[in-house]
Design a protein around this nucleic acid. Structure first.
Length: 412
RNA sequence: GUGGUCGUAGUUCAAUGGUAGAGCCCCGGCUUGUGAUGCCGGUUGUUGGGGGUUCGAAUCCCCUCGACCACCCCA
């Protein structure tokens, strides 16, 4: 056969039953915890107009400038596979006319697409669970949102993580801080690495979280945003910290948390694990008060976060995919219809049943064994004529004959 | 996008220029109404793909695809 090997495209992986079992566990925890905070699920498009991401994420960002799957469709429309969820959520919020409908609390789950070089925990198609809250401005809500993220991780049993928070300021205080930082950096430009020199032009705050040790030692007394917040931002940050303390949420202040996406302001946070190498950020988010307006709506405060489903799943122990409750072994052509009917009846009573398909007893028992069932229902001509079935316990090897209507009771 | 490690049977791995192998899995038999355990027998590969060097390549070289690692960036 000259068939060329077909495989999924780079960085786009299959979710097989073992993976999906974990994903469902994560999604169930999200639903449980987010519902307690009165968040509702929304389902948003995977495909959006390119314009949406250019205007929200920012044309200069890596995501927009080189990582989007972008194409023109047959009608000539410029479209993108969404690289993240917030922009689409804001678009939906505006499109539905909800700006006067009070606070909106949404969550969603689904694939995002970024054409990056893949690694473990970093895929070209990956899943995020995202949370967005529109129409609330205060630090109280920020603290509650962070507590919700914490509660979610605890629901999953993940406590080997740390939460780091920062404030990114706002259009009032950030420009002045930015200038101060840039002049600080320029004085030391020749001692900073090449990428930091590029970052100085493009996104100076990025220099602060450079991984190069020599840069970090050069930056020990670099000005920090939280020391230069305007009065309103300072009150907000103080309120956030007080709220987290009231809710017993463990956190560390990390003045070097930065955001690549243009729309963030004030509260920024990350939840990080040390167990996933360089891809340790498992949840990240923050406030984006300017985005709704930037996309054409009325000024509307908003905050949200996103988590990487695959990354979370990697932190979870293997989930064993549950096998069927029972297998049916039908012996002889004469019992074919009778065995099918029994299988159907047992399914309608809530048992999960596999039918071993007839043929030799050996083949069918082998199949039943492989399915990992605890019980096999043997249906032969003898049993059928007597109005009974044989139930075999696959662990003990014991068999007993009984009436069909007591099977369910016998296996529980 | 840059740099690096790796890729051999379904799977886990051997074979360092000289006939591609083992364990597990799988299939058949011992047992045509009984699996898992035991015994006997059997199949399994364009060595990721393509090209080159060589009498001869899994092994050396080049290209390419993929996984992984670091950077960039980010969930």
């Amino acid at each position: 056969m000259g068939i060329k090997k077909l495989q999924s495209i780079r960085g786009i992986h299959d979710g097989l039953p073992g993976d999906v079992a974990k994903w469902q566990k994560v999604e169930a925890a999200a639903k449980t915890v987010f519902s307690r905070y009165a968040f509702s699920e929304v389902r948003l498009p995977l495909l959006e107009p390119t314009e949406l991401f250019v205007r929200s994420i920012g044309e200069e960002t890596d995501i927009v400038s080189k990582e989007m799957y972008r194409f023109e469709d047959q009608g000539g429309d410029d479209l993108c596979l969404r690289p993240e969820g917030t922009a689409g959520a804001v678009r939906a919020y505006l499109q539905a006319g909800l700006t006067r409908a009070g606070a909106q609390r949404w969550y969603y789950t689904g694939p995002m697409f970024r054409r990056e070089r893949p690694q473990k925990g970093r895929l070209r198609q990956f899943q995020q669970i995202g949370v967005e809250m529109f129409g609330v401005a205060g630090p109280i809500e920020d603290a509650e949102l962070l507590a919700m993220a914490r509660d979610f991780l605890l629901e999953l049993g993940l406590d080997q993580v740390r939460m780091e928070i920062n404030s990114l300021g706002c259009p009032t205080c950030r420009p002045a801080y930015r200038d101060r930082l840039v002049s600080y950096l320029k004085e030391r430009a020749n001692k900073l690495c090449e990428t930091c020199n590029e970052r100085m032009e493009k996104n100076p705050m990025r220099v602060l979280d450079c991984k190069v040790a020599s840069c970090q030692s050069e930056l020990t007394d670099a000005p920090e945003m939280i020391a230069h917040l305007c009065a309103d931002c300072d009150v907000h940050f103080t309120g956030l910290k007080a709220g987290l303390e009231a809710l017993s949420v463990d956190y560390q202040i990390n003045p070097r948390i930065v955001r690549g996406l243009d729309y963030y302001n004030r509260t920024a946070f990350e939840i990080i694990t040390d167990q996933l190498g360089a891809q340790g950020t498992v949840i990240a988010g923050g406030r984006y008060d300017a985005l709704v307006e930037a996309l054409g709506g009325p000024a509307t405060p908003a905050i949200g976060f996103a988590m990487g489903l695959e990354r979370l799943a990697m932190l979870l122990p293997e989930v064993n995919v549950s096998g069927p409750d029972m297998a049916i072994v039908a012996l002889g052509d004469a019992v074919e219809g009778h065995a099918l009917m029994l299988a159907s009846q047992l399914r309608s009573k809530g048992l999960s049943i596999v039918h071993c398909g007839g043929g030799s007893a050996k083949r069918q028992f082998k199949m039943a064994d492989r399915e990992g069932v605890r019980f096999v229902l043997v249906v032969g001509e003898d049993e059928m004529n007597a109005g009974l079935v044989t139930l075999k316990n696959m662990q003990t090897g014991e068999q007993q004959q009984l009436a069909p209507d007591v099977i369910v009771a016998a296996v529980l």
